[in-house]
Each structure stands twice: as structure tokens, then as C-alpha cells.
Design a protein around this nucleic acid. Structure first.
Lengths: 345, 345
DNA sequence: CAAAATTACAAAAACGTTTCTGTCAATGCT
DNA sequence: AGCATTGACAGAAACGTTTTTGTAATTTTG
């Protein structure tokens, strides 16, 4: 069912039908209605390939799914929600989401991958996730004049479009809460150093100490994957120290679960003997034992902001320098932390 | 950089260059090498839109992300892994993954959605997830001659391509283990009835009883979303009964976490006072308290099988009737279950 | 009222491929 | 030698749109 058949059926020229369907002003309102009515009737759908060839646009936004760990087998579960939020916003605007997979954690191949993808004109815009402190992907997209939004920020001289959560404030809040409880030996199970979010969280954690004239003990800051496994081994290494930390703030709820398990193995009661704060407010965090004090993080909602930004960028309603969304931070107090007890001090 | 520039550069005709690049036999081996060498040199990439228009193929596989709950805001975290596995397999073959979002849980709109998508020739093949007992999407894809693989099975007279986990065996195993422990009042927190996986799990659970001449108490079978929240409220409703169940098998680890929380609220020690078995072997299941007895479920790996099936289907190397992959079942015993204690009996 | 402007449509080129058909030389066969 | 076959390439149409340009008829303007 092509446009030429539709035109023939209507007794109009192909160009008029095309212009009618695409909202041009030089077609009479009456014929426009006649055209769209008949189009719907016989189920005409413009061929995306032809449209794409002619107009040079793809109606697609690209994203590459990063493997969560070095194993390359896992994808961070968070991306389900993020992509869901993005798709939710871009689809009403006629865009689809094209997902690729980054199988290996290899900077050289990554550059070639992105280059191939951008130059191949597969998508009209890009969503860049898991931003690193210095991220070459941003330069690559800018050079190719490909609109993009990053989820997470990066160090860049040029302005760019980003959506992010307030990592610094979140961990400032968490550490401050623990300091208020009287804790001083507060460990920090952070994510991999190369990611910018880890850097920002580090900054917030440090600032909580300096804000009250204290200095953080840098030996209590550990880096690792944001998984239960990693949280478990990292926390174990912390607990055999002397003196051991009296509180731990974790980069994700998953890490916190691992840490809680490690504490339990040592006979420590989480919430009284030791305090633990997570991040993400995952649904599990409300049902674990003890219920986890954590920081709200609405990934689906952030995805919606990304999608909106993408659309407005594609429509040139806004400049990259003007799209910044910083998710506000809310701490969710539960029972995994508390005042420094006499015993642990 | 189009093929005509490349042809001009090489002093060959466009058709010869095209045929050289696409592996036709009527081009000399020497020229083929010359062409591909020069193509790589000047960075020629066939325009996907043009190729798509001419050949009618899109190099894309479609999948629609179902909203997890009726709220329509959440996407099941499992899909990250599944899509990761799929992408991992189809990308080396030159295919991408096109993801859409099903915002509403509405059968009528769903049909229109799929119809629009299939007819619109956006993708070469489809991945259908969250199969229901009777699933109209399968008939729609078949009618449109669109190759497809389902993740999860359905009731269908005609053969079709599917990848699934052995739901029936998994819950037969879990229930049998609890029966072996001496439990008889074994509740089942199942997923929504409309999904076929729930039906199969039900069947396995029932068969565990009948296999040893027992009959399951149907009032102990509850249906709900596969979330912590749902597991929590369902389990609570179970525990106020008299007599209460002495064991619970859950459709997912998440449900089990909710159930564990409900038990703890009632002062029940999970693993001795009451037994709980989950499903999925999520990373959290190993670190919660008590560590959860569960059933292995490798979603990424299943995704890879889906991807392979899709590729072989697209290459017509195999017929839909011949692609069936049933993930083997392995029970992971941990500490959340145990023998029926004298007190609870 | 003639000229200019506007309205509503049509013709045709173009996007960059793929593939069908054609051609010419070289080779094989009887 | 004469004819059919094969090998290696070229020409040209076609895929289904969008968009530039063109052109009548109608309306507005001075």
C-alpha cells in the first residue's frame, strides 16, 4: 500500500497526497481531510525506509547498553527502567529506541563502535549512559553533529545536554546523617573510579566532613562494582580492620545488601552495632532486614526527562546547553542506621 | 560517501561494486578484494535507509517492553539481561534491537500497536515476551509472515519458535523438596493467571502433590504481581489463616523477599518456623537473610538463545517449528527452608 | 480593468541502494 | 571452424517517499 496507490485512489497527485499528510500549507483543508480519512481507511502507512532515504532522518534514537561487569555477560538492571522512561516519552513523538550492546569493556573498540554507529546514520540522536570522568563519546557525537543527551555528567569544557541525579548532594546527605548520629569512622563503598558519578559522590561524602571541620579518613574509601558480591567482599575487608568503621555508606542498595550480609557474618547487628546507608531506594530495600535507609532514585522518571530532552533537541526547540535536569535528592530513613552506640565506639 | 563515489574512484560500475560488496559470484576475486580494500580505506558505509528501501529488509529485530505493573511506570528489571543477551547474539550478524514501550496494559490498543508495527515494516523479526495463555500476538505475527521468537510459551495449535525456562519442572522441584521436608500445607505465591508461565508453574506445583498421592489445597494458591510488595501482602494474608501454611513457594525471588519480611513481622524464623523457596537465583538471593533457597534462572543466557534463534530464522536455516530451547532447571539450596518443625506442625 | 499576488494542485527529480537484464570477450565442445 | 557456454562486468530500472519547481485558476490590488 504505497502513496502512489493512495493518490490514484483519491484522484490526486502523489505530491499533493504527501504534502497533505505532512501538514504543508499549500493544500486545501478540505482535501487534507479527505486524504487523511481515506489513508486511515485503507491503512496507509508511509514506508519508513523510503522516508528515511529521502529525508535523511531515521525516527530512531540510539543507546548502547553497557555490560555491567568485566565479564560482559550482565547488563545493569537499572537500564530497563531508564529505557522504559525514554521510550515512554519519545514514542508519542514518533521515535523508536534502537539499542545496541557493548559486549566488551574496551575503550579502543568502543570508539570504533560509536564512530561506526554515528557515521552509519542509523539514528537521529544518541543517549549516552554511564558517563566517565573524561568521556570521548561526547566529543565524537559533537563532532558528528549528532544530537545527544547524557545520563550522568562528565568533565567537559563545552556545554552539553545532560540528565543526572544529584550524586554529590545525595552522599553529602547520607554522610551528614551519619555524622549527626555521632559516627566518625564512616566508610564509603563507592563505584568504579572512572565513572563520574563515583567522583561526584566522593566529593559529597568528603564535603560532609569538611563542612563541620572534620577530615575524612581516605583509607575508608573503597571502590568496586556496584553489586552485592562486591559490597560483600569490600565490607568484609573493612570489618577485619582495627579499629573497624562504625558506619558504611554504599554506592547502591545492592552493595548495601552485600555489606549487611558481611556484617551479619561477623555477628554485628545492623542499625545498632553498625550503621549502613544504601542508595537507590530499590523495592528490595524496604523489605530486607533491617529495612534499609537509602536515598530515593527514580530511574524511570529520569528516563522520561531524557526522552523529553531528546525530542526537544530533535525539534530544535532547545539548545544542548539549556537541557540540564538534576534529580532532587530525598533521603528515605529506615532502620539500618542509628546513633553511634557506646559498644561500637 | 555513497556507492557511486566509490565506484567512480575505482573506475568500476555501481552495480559491480554493489555485487562485489554483497558477495555475488559473478565478480572476480581480485576485483572483490580491491573493492573491499578501498571501501574500508575511504570509510564507505552502505546507507541503511537506501538498502532498506530497496531490499525491504531493516536489519532490526523488534521487541516491545511490557510495563511490569498496572501503573505502567515500571519495566521488569529482567529485560535488561534478556535484551542484553539478544543483542549480544544478533549484533555480530548485523542486526540491531528496536525497542518499543507498551505504556498501557490494554488488549485492544495492544493489538493495534503490534499491527501498526508489523505492517509498518519497521523490523525483520519480532521478539514476543510475556506470553499469555492465549496470545493474539502470535497469530498476528504469523499472519503477517513476520518471523518471530517468543520468550515463554503459549497455547497454540500451530508450531512456533520459542525459548523458555522449564517452569513446570522448576516448581515441581521446589514443591517436591518441601514435601520431602515433611511439609503439607505448602502455599504458592504465583504470578498473574493470564501469563502462561504462571499456568505451567501451577501445573508443576500440583503434580508434585499428585505424584505422591496427595492433593494440593487450592486455597493456598494465590496470584499477584511478581514484586516484593505483592509478596508481602499476599504472605500476610496467608499467615493470619488458621492453620497457616508451613511453607511457601514463590514465583520470583522478589516475591520471596516480600514474604520473608511478612514472616519476620509475625515473629516467624524463616528456615525453621516456616520454609520459603524463591525463583530466579537473583544476586540478592544469596545475600539476604536467611540466604534464599531458589531456582537457577539465567536470563542473559536465555536471551542469547533467543538471539541465535532469531538469526537462524532470518537466514532461513531453520523452521519455526524446530526452534525450541527449554532452559534446564537447577535448584539452589540455601537456608530459607528446612524440615517441618514440631512447633509449626 | 489590467497587473500582481495568492491558492491549490501537478510534474519530476532526487535520495543510495539492489537486482534484473544485457553485452562482450574468452573458453569449451563437436 | 562454428556454435553454445561461461566469466566478468555495465546499464538501467526500481524501491516509496519528499521536495523543488512549475502552472493553471482565482482573488486581490492600485
Amino acid at each position: 500500500m504505497s502513496i502512489v496507490l493512495l493518490a490514484k485512489d483519491l484522484g490526486l497527485s502523489v505530491s499533493t497526497v504527501s504534502r497533505a499528510l505532512n501538514g504543508y500549507t499549500d493544500v486545501a483543508e478540505s482535501t487534507r481531510e479527505r486524504v487523511s480519512a481515506r489513508a486511515k481507511e485503507i491503512g496507509y502507512r508511509p514506508n519508513p525506509g523510503a522516508r528515511r532515504l529521502k529525508s535523511g532522518t531515521t525516527s530512531a534514537v540510539g543507546v548502547v547498553l553497557p555490560a555491567a561487569s568485566s565479564s560482559g555477560q550482565v547488563v545493569d538492571a537499572m537500564y530497563s527502567s531508564l529505557l522504559g522512561g525514554v521510550a515512554n516519552e519519545i514514542e508519542p513523538a514518533g521515535y523508536h529506541l534502537l539499542a545496541m550492546m557493548q559486549t566488551r569493556h574496551d575503550p579502543v573498540r568502543e570508539a570504533a563502535f560509536y564512530d561506526n554507529f554515528i557515521k552509519g546514520s542509523w539514528v537521529d540522536a544518541l543517549l549516552i549512559v554511564r558517563t566517565r570522568v573524561h568521556d570521548p563519546r561526547i566529543e565524537a557525537a559533537r563532532k558528528a553533529h549528532m544530537p545527544f543527551v547524557t545520563y550522568g555528567r562528565t568533565e567537559s569544557k563545552e556545554p552539553y545536554a545532560w540528565v543526572d541525579t544529584d550524586n554529590e548532594k545525595a552522599f553529602h546527605l547520607a554522610a551528614t546523617r551519619l555524622l549527626d548520629f555521632g559516627h566518625r569512622r564512616i566508610a564509603f563503598l563507592n563505584g568504579p573510579e572512572e565513572y563520574y558519578f563515583a567522583q561526584l559522590r566522593h566529593r559529597g561524602y568528603i564535603r560532609a566532613f569538611t563542612d563541620r571541620g572534620l577530615t575524612a579518613d581516605s583509607t575508608l574509601i573503597l571502590h568496586g562494582e556496584v553489586t552485592e558480591e562486591s559490597g560483600h567482599v569490600l565490607c568484609r575487608s573493612l570489618l577485619i580492620r582495627n579499629p573497624a568503621p562504625t558506619a558504611i555508606v554504599c554506592a547502591t542498595d545492592a552493595m548495601a545488601f552485600g555489606a549487611i550480609a558481611a556484617c551479619r557474618e561477623r555477628g554485628l547487628r545492623v542499625g545498632s552495632d553498625i550503621s549502613i546507608i544504601g542508595y537507590g531506594n530499590s523495592s528490595a530495600s524496604a523489605y530486607c532486614h533491617p529495612p534499609l535507609t537509602t536515598v530515593e532514585h527514580q530511574v524511570f522518571e529520569n528516563g522520561r526527562h531524557v526522552g523529553q530532552a531528546l525530542i526537544r533537541l530533535l525539534r530544535k526547540e532547545i539548545k544542548p546547553a539549556d537541557v540540564h535536569y538534576l534529580e532532587p535528592v530525598v533521603l528515605v530513613p529506615r532502620n539500618s542506621d542509628g546513633p553511634l552506640s557506646a559498644t561500637s565506639a
